[in-house]
Structures are given as structure tokens and as C-alpha cells.
Amino acid sequence: MKFSKDVRLFHRTKDLEVKIDQFLDALSESALVFRGAVDAYLVEGCSDQFSEKHHHVDRLESEADRLRREVETQLYTQTLIPESRGDVLGLLENLDHIINLIEGVFWSFDVEKPEVPDHCIEGFQALVTASCDAVEAVVLASRAFFRNIEAVGDHNHKVVYFETEADKASTRLKRKIFESDFDLATKIHLREFAEKIDDIADWSEDVADRLAIYVIKRTV
């Protein structure tokens, strides 16, 4: 009886480990798909390729939501990691928000279909690259939080670096937009997109800051 209970405990732990990994995979994949989708949009607008990537991220977002809920419920109903479950919960919810931000930008492109002038394309690509790199780095930092806590700092350092790069790219892009001859409505419209993409990097940095605190709590 006791033995079988212990075996079940190990099985449940393994199940949760897999779910957390799948959740992080979904986030990482969303960022990769997002990068490709914006590239596709900048070249050919709202094409089939863009729509297909949009659906892909929609599916990943739903999957991530489901996994997050299951992990949270299991952590509490099975009273696992009582010391750190509040932190894990906060971490998962904040990471989930990153996917929501990515999905939000997708919908904005899909619905608002902004016209991006040629001389701004490079600026948008640089911004998307820096933001997606920040997301990739925060996913690695989160994986390290679960398996190799000492490596969290190294990944966090990269998150901060990419967030700064995203800020720089965003400022450069906004300057370009407002120095051009477009009408004010277009300028504001494009600026909004630059800010939405930059938000992804900002939020990644916020998660990295939380992770840094969780690490301090666990090593004291």
C-alpha cells in the first residue's frame, strides 16, 4: 500500500515535470513561429503562410493555457513543493502572459493589417529578433530554475541584454517612423506595433527579475 503510494508519487512528479517542459516548449515555439510570421508579413502581407503561423500560435497558446492550469491544480491538490509552489505559479502565469502578448500582436497584424514602408522593414526585423531572443533566453532561465538553479543568472543576464537591444531597436524604429512623410495616423499606427513587439521583451525581463528573486529565496 505504502510502496504503491510512493510509486504513484514518483509517477505524478514525472507527469508534472513533463507538463512543465511542454509548457516551456510551447512558449519557445511561439517565439520562433512569431519571428517567421513577422518576416513573412513584412515581405508579403497577410499571406497564407502568415495565417498558417497565426493558427499555429493560437493552438500553442491554448495548449499552454491547458498545461498551466493542470500544473497549477496538481501542485495544489497534491500539495507538492510547498516551499516553492507560489513561486512556480507566479512564474508560469507570467510566462503564459508572454504567449498572450505574442498572440495579441498576431491578431493586431491580422485585423489592422498595417502598411509597413520598405525603409522600416529592417527596423521591425531587428526589433522582432531582439524580442524573440529575450523570450528564448527567459525560457532557458526558467528551465534552469527547475533543473540547474545556478545557471539561472547566466540566462537572466542574456534576457537583460536582449531587452536592452529591443529597446534600442524600438527607439530607432520609432525615430524612423516619425522622421518620415507619412500622415500622423500611420505614424501612430506603426508606433503602436513597435511598442507591442517591444512589450514582449519588457515582459521577458520582468519574468527574469522575478526568477532572480526566486533563486535568492531558494539558496538562502
Partner: peptide
């Protein structure tokens, strides 16, 4: 223990036992 790179959840189970 720091160098084992055990998953947080796995470590929790071992710690309980």
C-alpha cells in the same frame, strides 16, 4: 545536491522521503 541537476519536483519528492 546542487550539482545533481535534479528537477525541482523530483528533489521535493526525495526531500519528503
Amino acid at each position: 545536491i546542487r550539482h545533481t541537476k535534479l528537477h525541482l519536483l523530483r528533489r521535493d519528492t526525495y526531500t519528503r522521503i
